[in-house]
Write a protein that binds this DNA or RNA. Structure first.
Lengths: 184, 184
DNA sequence: TTTTCATTATAACACTTGTTATTTTACAGG
DNA sequence: CCTGTAAAATAACAAGTGTTATAATGAAAA
């Protein structure tokens, strides 16, 4: 009957995601995606109503990317929030553009930081419970303080204003947890 | 002899700065500045070689704006880094776009965070000395920890993920200083 | 008053953006 | 082998960008 599709929705989404990762979401334009996918702009608008819909899909994939990054992150700390924080900072260092998209930039199509961070597996809730079980009286406040600190380190790394190694970062986070824990 | 200039370099710069403050540096375009200044695009390119030069000037004015903001900030804390941190976070809340320009976004024409923060009056150095005089053994490390925390709070406020009042923030920063000080 | 010439406005150029109309292409059913 | 039809390519539109060429303007010197 009709012509067989040669460019799938996944081709478009993967291309857009790859570009968001390498060049930032602002460079994910119709023509650039088309060029990188080796087609015209038409297949994009067949599978997505408009560019905003693609950007939203890319955001979703970035969110999944972070979740997977944390899932397969080498978790070696005994202390709450530290592994999640280390993954967060590593992610910011490795995927600046995706981190910006997910946790810094406000392009209109973003969820609250907490939601992305918590993910589908309740990452944050698990850590808060872990803190509680370790005898932390105010685990919510503990989370707030720790995450302000972790978010600060991650954001600083974006501009090259944070130059600690991951080993040092691990020690810093554990130390910070202890510091905060003394008052909570 | 010649026609008298009706649009000064300050008209252009002030207009550009105001737009950066209200709408973000990305909206400081030649035509938009011209429209807001009530002239054509020509006077812009008379006083600035190109748009990048204007953006650099706007960045400089933003930097001065922060310095002035801190100078006239109501400093009521006895503890090092707290007033500077409070001003930093207040600035982020009040002037999102300028804060982004100065401390988050990398548009190519930016100085390191530390340089802007330290300013022409050595704000940071003063605080580090204050910490030393208060008996802090590692004031540099203290600054690093405090500033990671402060930067984190400021960046979180950009996305509405930080909702403490300034009173609460003040208490939080003093508490954090004490927490960190116990280990340094 | 006329002339001079920097300043300003108007247009244009070349480019990029999202989006859509139109044409071409290719595949499968008759 | 046609032929219908969906997919893809081409081309266009309208709006935006930085920048520049050209024309109009206005004030002071002659």
């Amino acid at each position: 009957m009709a012509r067989k599709e040669s460019i799938t929705i996944n081709d478009i989404l993967n291309t857009g995601f790859e570009m968001a990762k390498e060049e930032g979401i602002r460079n994910v334009t119709a023509r650039k995606v088309a060029a990188k996918a080796g087609c015209s702009t038409q297949p994009i608008f067949r599978v997505y109503k408009n560019m905003e819909e693609l950007w939203t899909a890319v955001y979703g994939k970035a969110s999944e990317c972070f979740e997977e990054f944390y899932r397969s992150f080498d978790k070696k700390s005994k202390m709450p929030f530290v592994d999640l924080g280390m993954a967060y900072i590593s992610f910011a260092m490795k995927y600046k553009n995706l981190f910006m998209l997910l946790f810094v930039e406000d392009v209109g199509v973003g969820k609250p930081l907490y939601e992305v961070l918590n993910g589908t597996e309740g990452n944050v809730i698990k850590e808060i419970n872990a803190a509680k079980e370790l005898g932390c009286a105010k685990p919510q406040d503990m989370f707030m303080r720790m995450w302000i600190f972790i978010h600060g380190a991650a954001c600083m790394s974006l501009n090259g204003d944070y130059d600690l190694s991951m080993e040092e970062t691990g020690k810093l986070l554990e130390e910070s947890y202890n510091s905060f824990a003394a008052n909570l």
